[in-house]
Design a protein around this nucleic acid. Structure first.
Lengths: 177, 177
DNA sequence: TACGATTATGCAACTTGTTGCGCAAAGGAG
DNA sequence: CTCCTTTGCGCAACAAGTTGCATAATCGTA
């Protein structure tokens, strides 16, 4: 839904090839907006057609590296999108459907699944905290940009923390019953 | 992704028509798994073909009510799915892409959007808290099923609360910069 | 009874995202 | 040089979800 914008943002930070973009998605942007390389190539193609990005590199044959960069119209489009409004997404979690089903069925033990999720959330949280310690050490930040980047990371941290706590509380309560 | 299971669960609680199902989705299940009536009808058709649910009511013409109920194989399928494992979804939030873009662009004020989201999360949280006060009053619950249903609702509460707090903190920090 | 609004059902087209595969270039090992 | 693996690129088929619309019954009301 906002993949083109994510790509423009990333390319604006640093022009690169599709594959490099995919790798960067896995590392930073991908924490809160995932995309496969197929999607990225498809989207790059569209952005190129719309004249928002430009590729230098030969598109003649396959397997050739194509280096992309954002053009002025691309930046303008991103700017206007960025100033716009959007709704937050509602939760959509399989685990909650499972719990609901378990409540109705009455024959399924959900604790193993909760333990599983607790572990995964703890792991992801650990990753985020490590990034925070590394990229945003104690003390005030200089720029507003830093503040914003940190805010994005904190969203991930808060998200994982709250799920983690929820898993723990729910395990306690379900165990007690 | 888990729409068929959500439908089976809901039908198991109480058999009903497609339209009634859609209405129930809007009220309870829909808080954490949304679906339009088109999706629901489509899925009901598939479930019927697979022999997991049965419709009594004339399918001859359109506009005729069809009352659905879960068959034994349907319950079995739900049971085995429910005991299975799944991964939690990673965050995927447009707002975070916007913040990231704003950080790179450096020319956009994201505070109005943050204020907007704060209001929406506060509103949703209010709805959830009202449901909690109504359906799960103070004191211990009787059944394990109640405990599970409450856990699902608490997930929503925790989710909204953490976003709300994040919005507030981020507004403070961005304002200060 | 006829008419309009509402309710229930469903098709079709489109968008987004995933999965699986194939082809081309580059680089190292034998 | 040849073969094999890795990297970069991209198509095609599918699955999930959204949007828009069509059609049939039903119900209140003039």
């Amino acid at each position: 839904m906002s993949l083109p914008q994510a790509i423009l943002t990333s390319l604006l930070e640093k022009p690169c090839t599709g594959a490099e973009l995919a790798r960067r998605f896995d590392k930073s942007l991908g924490h809160f907006w995932q995309a496969t390389h197929q999607q990225i190539y498809k989207e790059l193609g569209k952005l190129e057609q719309r004249g928002l990005v430009q590729a230098h590199g030969l598109a003649a044959t396959r397997g050739q590296q194509r280096h992309f960069e954002v053009l002025a119209p691309g930046r303008a489009v991103l700017e206007s999108w960025c100033a716009g409004r959007g709704e937050p997404r509602a939760i959509r979690d399989e685990l909650l459907v499972r719990l609901r089903a378990a409540a109705v069925l009455g024959t399924v033990d959900v604790r193993p699944e909760l333990v599983h999720h607790r572990a995964l959330h703890a792991q992801t949280l650990g990753r985020y905290l490590a990034i925070e310690a590394h990229d945003f050490p104690e003390g005030a930040h200089r720029s507003g940009a830093d503040e914003l980047q940190h805010a994005v990371l904190r969203a991930g941290i808060v998200y994982e923390q709250s799920w983690l706590r929820w898993c723990e509380q729910t395990l306690e309560r379900v165990a007690a019953s």
